[in-house]
């Protein structure tokens, strides 16, 4: 079933090449939305350029990030090795996989450190994740196009094509990528329960935030946005009237390491 759907999409992809669809777009559906049900419906959300605005003023403590991280990691079957039997704590740390997590200001915004910082900023935990860069160095580095940027700006992974060379991890200036050093399906949390809407991974491939491409295709908001009680907005950066653009117009925002020219699509209102 899964196979035939993939090959159907591939054929559709070849057919669509002529009408201006690019191949990566279709590969994206083929690989990131693998699941038992066809998921590209009329309800699918679309954008010229997907982006995210995080209103950090709405976070008060690290606790506020927990449901967000949990929602994302649950939706995407991210393995949790923290209670893996017979693994040392060093191993658990080395093999850690995370798509979205919290960091102090000076770690998240390494080029914007100040000696003296407002109390709030100093003690806040900032959610960090893949920035879905407009000029993604990870995509530039990947020798197989296993990681690629879709026309709507989402940077995706094809878990079936990745050879696990980890060139993309060296290339990402934000530490946003994780590698499956061991079989993720052996993690306790995934042995207990997996989310059927997203594939689990095999060992030896890289993974990262996919801006919930599989949920957007079903007309749903990304899991983090949904769990954030309004602190995270996802929308079309290419549309001046979109939710995200209106937020950016009315609030001062910053991005991570803009001087590198990667053009992150994730904005932080501080």
């Amino acid at each position: 079933m899964e196979k035939s759907r993939r090959s159907f999409l591939k054929i559709a992809g070849v057919a669509a090449l002529g009408v201006g669809f690019t191949k990566p777009t279709l590969n994206a559906y083929a690989s990131s939305v693998v699941g038992p049900h066809p998921q590209i419906g009329d309800k699918a959300l679309s954008a010229h350029h997907w982006g995210m605005v995080i209103d950090t003023r709405k976070f008060h403590s690290e606790k506020d990030l927990e449901p967000i991280v949990e929602a994302c990691h649950k939706a995407h079957n991210v393995p949790d090795f923290s209670d893996m039997p017979n693994a040392t704590s060093a191993e658990k740390k080395r093999h850690e996989i995370k798509w979205i997590w919290g960091e102090p200001y000076h770690n998240a915004f390494t080029d914007k450190e100040n000696h003296y910082q407002s109390h709030r900023i100093e003690h806040l935990s900032f959610p960090v994740l893949c920035n879905h860069c407009e000029e993604p160095p990870c995509v530039l580095a990947c020798p197989t196009k296993a990681t690629f940027r879709r026309d709507d700006g989402i940077v995706l992974m094809d878990f079936h094509r990745c050879i696990g060379c980890r060139f993309c991890m060296a290339a990402c200036p934000y530490g946003s990528r994780s590698f499956n050093f061991v079989d993720p399906r052996r993690a306790e949390n995934l042995k207990e329960e997996t989310c059927p809407d997203f594939p689990t991974r095999m060992k030896g491939v890289v993974e990262k935030c996919n801006l919930c491409a599989e949920r957007l295709a079903k007309g749903l908001q990304p899991a983090c946005a949904e769990a954030s009680k309004g602190a995270i907005a996802v929308g079309d950066l290419g549309d001046p009237h979109s939710n995200v653009r209106v937020l950016l117009e009315h609030n001062f925002s910053i991005r991570r390491k803009p001087s590198l020219g990667t053009e992150p699509s994730v904005y932080y209102i501080v």
Binding site: L140, A141, C142, P143, T144, K145, A146, R161, C162, I163, G164, C165, R166, F167, F179, N180, M202, K203, G204, V205, V206
Partner: peptide
């Protein structure tokens, strides 16, 4: 030895990607 999925090593040739430096290194 360094590849996470060594059986897929040939993907570098099957999906040649001339923007990647690894392509030229190969």
């Amino acid at each position: 030895a360094d590849l996470g999925q060594p059986m897929r090593a040939l993907n570098v040739i099957l999906h040649p990607t001339p923007r990647s430096m690894l392509f030229y290194d190969m």
